[in-house]
């Protein structure tokens, strides 16, 4: 059953498109990864879904969650959905909590925003949430201030806040990027376990292919503010079709350093992601793409089916891609 449908989402700043025609869907309980380099518009897409775009940005297109069209919703109605059906975990756990408020109260506030329950009930729910995100003695942790917690602990608190009202969909924007490597794995497996137990859907946004492929059922590859390829995780990893996906996989394999790359050089994608106002017309990957031809001046549409790709000259569906 489709939970979230985004179609032809466009975000503009001063007449320039930051997100150009983003379409995606997430099924109930599904874990979807959204991957792309920095500058590909991932975070902006998440903020657009939350209805929290910075001032001065305009939005077109459609966002439908559980059959409710979110675009054009009044802030009052949107606020009823935010945190209740749709929750978000941000990248920076160090600054995402109010430094002057005990963490227990911040979680309790989140619970009470959408539930008409007494303070005592909310408190017991809060302690329960703290225990669920892995704090051995919740009552003690609840009395702490954010600065008394480590980065990993703060991200657990933020996960607890996101889970407070059993949302149908959780957006997680680079939830582990700011954490130490050892803590990253813990937080990631916690997140994975919790969304499975809660039967929430997860849209995990990351630049890290390893992170996304370890958690998600399906991966969307984003470049230049649009989805260029969408397929089950296995297929993305074994049979990528878009030249950008292929290049992305090559770079991450290069890092795994199995001796295939020549002379110790890491494979890189030629060129850099253009500034958001300097993307070429036509296919967004033009200029960096090895397979570019004249036809690429036209915008390719995303194909239909389980494995979708937006490219005029994709790699064949059987092959091993760029090898």
């Amino acid at each position: 059953m489709t939970l979230l449908t985004v179609s032809d989402l466009v975000v503009e700043a001063a007449g320039q498109q930051i997100i150009r025609g983003l379409s995606l869907s997430v099924n109930a309980g599904e874990r979807v990864g959204l991957i792309g380099e920095s500058g590909s518009g991932k975070t902006m897409a998440a903020l657009a879904l939350m209805g929290l775009l910075p001032e001065g940005l305009s939005l077109q297109g459609s966002i439908e969650l559980e059959g409710v069209e979110l675009t054009g919703l009044s802030d009052r109605r949107y606020s009823e959905i935010r945190g209740d059906r749709l929750a978000m975990i941000f990248q920076e756990p160090m600054t995402a909590l109010d430094p002057l408020m005990r963490v227990g109260r911040q979680i309790r506030d989140a619970v009470r925003l959408h539930r008409r329950i007494s303070r005592a009930e909310a408190s017991s729910r809060m302690l329960q949430l703290l225990a669920r995100v892995g704090f051995p003695n919740p009552a003690e942790q609840a009395r702490r201030f954010p600065h008394q917690l480590s980065g990993g602990q703060r991200q657990r608190v933020l996960i607890a806040i996101a889970l407070a009202c059993d949302p149908a969909l959780i957006l997680a924007d680079e939830p582990t990027t700011a954490l130490d490597v050892t803590v990253q794995a813990q937080v990631l497996s916690l997140l994975q376990r919790l969304v499975r137990e809660e039967r929430s859907a997860l849209l995990l946004i990351s630049h890290d292919l390893a992170v996304v492929s370890s958690v998600c059922d399906r991966i969307l590859v984003m470049y230049g503010g649009t989805v260029v390829e969408s397929a089950p995780t296995r297929e993305i990893l074994t049979a990528p079709r878009h030249p950008y996906t292929v290049a992305l996989l090559d770079t991450s394999r290069g890092i795994s350093a199995d001796g295939e790359t020549a002379a110790g050089q890491l494979p890189t994608i030629p060129g850099a992601v253009p500034a958001w106002d300097q993307f070429p017309c036509g296919c967004v990957f033009r200029g960096r793409c090895p397979r570019e031809q004249d036809r690429c001046r036209e915008v390719p549409r995303l194909t239909e089916g389980e494995h979708r790709v937006a490219c005029w000259f994709p790699f064949s569906s059987e092959g091993g891609g760029g090898a």
Partner: peptide
């Protein structure tokens, strides 16, 4: 522009609620 205000908004607080609850003291 503080991140915790965005967190509060993501929890479902209205702008003025978030400002009163987290903005004033900070």
């Amino acid at each position: 522009s503080a991140d915790y205000l965005r967190t509060a908004r993501a929890e479902g607080m209205r702008r003025h609620q978030a400002l009163l609850r987290h903005g004033m003291r900070n």
